[in-house]
């Protein structure tokens, strides 16, 4: 065995565990806003992901233990679950998770080999295939409680909805509304301010800052992504404030914060050079706003990330940094 003979204490498991921990504030806010239904979704996605991971590792002839304990499958499951509508039906959750783990991750070669972000592939497949189910969001607690019978669903009730049992009609009406982003698109956002989405965004931001403080993510990607959103939104708002939301409003949406700190920062499918990370983040932010504004889907984050994933090899190649003692400018074509 050659040198070095010592290692610091980091591990893939440790990194993934911190990512999960950093998601907890967001999950907490989610429960507070939408009720405990998300916990059912998270559990279902986690179980599906671990089962799919085990089966695929076995099929590919890899030992299950070191790869299951790296926790990467759970991270994918949680990120997908948090992107889904809060009371999405069970089959939607399973389909998305299976697609993420089996196709986007393992068919591309497993951990470290996937060129696309698995959670975003899962999301994209679902929104393209099941647009109706993917755009029915339960409103936040404050909104639903304005309704006649708008009470928080209990964990059992949430599970019942997710697994397809019937609910009283009134409750169903209360929980079915356009997605927060649809609301944004249709200009209803005035009502939305102050009802809690900012709190969810803030909770994701908090978790993200923890990851940055632990140096698990770099500053470049989140900052560039947020800058991309803000600049594009600001540009649009400047020209037509009536049609386009204020930049700060676009920034403080949960999907943007989740993406900035947890999705765009996925190291496997993202750019690796410092400048490349800036390009990746800016591009993803810009594309998110473009798709949000002119695209046919309620949100652009998933497609923006996938489009930037495609560009990663190119970005990396053209943003190679200067090496120690190297020329100031690399004459690379």
């Amino acid at each position: 065995m050659p040198s070095p003979f010592i290692l610091d204490r980091s591990s893939v498991t440790q990194i993934m565990a911190w990512v999960l921990v950093a998601l907890l504030p967001g999950i907490g806010a989610y429960v507070w806003l939408f009720g405990p239904g998300i916990l059912v979704t998270l559990t279902l996605a986690t179980v599906t992901a671990l089962a799919a991971e085990t089966a695929m590792l076995k099929a590919r002839g890899y030992p299950a233990k070191p790869f299951l304990t790296d926790l990467s499958a759970i991270v994918t499951a949680w990120l997908l679950a948090l992107s889904l509508p809060s009371l999405a039906p069970w089959w939607l959750i399973i389909t998305g998770t299976l697609f993420a783990i089996v196709v986007a991750k393992h068919l591309y070669g497993g951990l470290g080999q996937n060129i696309f972000n698995p959670a975003m592939i899962g999301y994209a497949v679902l929104i393209v295939s099941f647009p109706v189910q993917m755009t029915q969001w339960a409103g936040p607690l404050e909104l639903t409680s304005l309704d006649s019978s708008g009470v928080h669903l209990t964990l059992a009730q949430s599970a019942a909805v997710i697994f397809g049992s019937d609910l009283p009609k009134a409750t169903l009406d209360a929980i079915t509304m356009a997605t927060p982003l649809d609301v944004l698109r249709t200009g209803l956002h005035q009502q939305m301010t102050g009802v809690g989405f900012e709190w969810l965004a803030a909770a994701f931001l908090l978790g993200g800052l923890l990851l940055w403080a632990l140096r698990i993510i770099s500053w470049q990607v989140p900052l560039a992504f947020l800058a991309g959103i803000w600049l594009t939104a600001g540009f649009l708002h400047f020209f037509d404030a009536g049609r386009f939301g204020a930049p700060w409003f676009h920034l403080f949406t949960p999907s943007v914060m989740l993406c900035a700190f947890f999705i765009a920062t996925d190291p496997v499918s993202g750019a690796t050079t410092p400048r490349g990370k800036l390009v990746f983040g800016l591009g993803a932010g810009f594309l998110t706003m473009v798709i949000r504004t002119w695209g046919g889907f309620p949100d652009g984050v998933a497609f923006a990330i996938l489009l930037m994933n495609v560009c990663v090899p190119l970005i990396d190649q053209y943003t190679q940094p200067r090496i120690y003692g190297g020329a100031r400018k690399e004459p690379r074509a």
Binding site: M1, I6, I15, F67, G112, G270
Partner: peptide, 15 residues
């Protein structure tokens, strides 16, 4: 000097 643990695939974390 504990024996080095099994190597996993690179996750491009750039540490």
């Amino acid at each position: 000097f504990p024996p080095l643990p099994r190597a996993l695939p690179c996750i491009r974390c750039t540490r």
